[in-house]
Design a protein around this nucleic acid. Structure first.
Length: 296
DNA sequence: CCCAAGTCCTGGTTGC
DNA sequence: TGCAACCAGGACTTGG
């Protein structure tokens, strides 16, 4: 599941390749996954547009385009989305076999079954670049807007990892909330970027139960929570994301955060901190693993 | 058939 | 009582 660290990993790889590049052709569009515009508008507005910069807010990748129109291309990877760049510098040699999925086709011109969008750009060096958006489950989204960023972004809280928020912000948003703490962390209106995996990990490291009512945390607990949010997301970024089944970077390579999971998906296993058996509950409709022994 | 999950949407509840 | 904020749960998607 692409959460903040996975999305940041992809953004970091997109930025050097695509910044300064120009869209030349729209090769494929999945209308179902489009927001804020039609397929015709994508085909009309994008060709000729140059990439000014690529930023991220929460789980959204924001491609700002040059020109006076205020054109923005905004991507969300949903739960199985992948961005692949071809060719990518350095991908020719020394990559693991998984890199084979990085191909835009099977080598004989047949496109991958889950390709939803495909664009051809030309880099500032004049090199052609294919930008492919694959997504088996079609939860991913592509917004194209003029006159400013996608409206969807304005409903988000500050970026959970790099945002300006501090302990006071977190305390203020927690105050009075009766939702379970896990549901609070998943709510992108408070902090943007935390998903199911990192929510479970953050709570395990903080030693707080996912079932705790959000508004019942004391000052010291809020402080710990704020610290662990930045720490765990930072570790995820450093490890190039978490690959359980689908996530790969723009060259088709998995991340390594999955090797460090303490809670997520480990129900029935032993807690490495206290030895209790990790338990599974459902919170906010999401599978949640935690330790009833040391998460309070 | 059920499960996985992020976001959107709906309808019911709470509290000022 | 009115109303907005809050909260729970279902829909959507498709591969395992």
């Amino acid at each position: 599941m692409p959460e903040l660290p996975e999305v940041e990993t992809v953004r970091r790889q997109m930025a050097p390749v695509l910044t300064g590049a120009t869209f030349e052709a729209v090769l494929q569009v999945e209308p179902f996954m489009l927001r804020d515009c039609s397929a015709d508008e994508v085909r009309r507005l994008l060709p000729g547009a140059g990439v000014a910069d690529i930023t991220r807010l929460g789980k959204f990748i924001v491609v700002r385009l040059e020109g006076d129109a205020g054109l923005y291309l905004t991507l969300h990877l949903g739960m199985t989305g992948q961005i692949l760049l071809l060719p990518t510098p350095g991908r020719a040699e020394g990559l693991p076999a998984a890199a084979a999925v990085g191909r835009a086709d099977d080598g004989e011109g047949r496109r991958h079954a889950h390709t939803r969008f495909m664009f051809r750009l030309r880099s500032c060096d004049g090199v052609p670049v294919l930008l492919e958006f694959r997504d088996a489950r079609k939860f991913g989204r592509l917004h194209l807007t003029t006159g400013g960023p996608a409206p969807r972004l304005f409903g988000l809280g500050p970026d959970a990892w790099q945002g300006e928020w501090d302990v006071d912000h977190l305390a203020a948003r927690l105050a009075g909330r009766r939702v379970p703490l896990k549901a609070f962390l998943l709510d992108q209106r408070y902090l943007a970027g935390i998903g199911n995996i990192y929510a479970d990990e953050i709570l395990w490291w903080t030693g707080l139960s996912p079932l705790r009512q959000a508004g019942t945390l004391d000052a010291e607990e809020v402080d710990r929570l704020a610290g662990e949010i930045r720490l765990r997301l930072g570790e995820g970024v450093r490890r190039l994301g978490c690959t359980l089944s689908d996530f790969v970077d723009t060259e088709g390579r998995p991340g390594t955060f999955q090797e460090r999971l303490e809670a997520y998906g480990r129900q029935g296993e032993t807690c490495s901190r206290c030895g209790e058996t990790l338990k599974r509950v459902v919170i906010a409709g999401r599978g949640t693993a935690y330790c009833p022994g040391c998460q309070r």
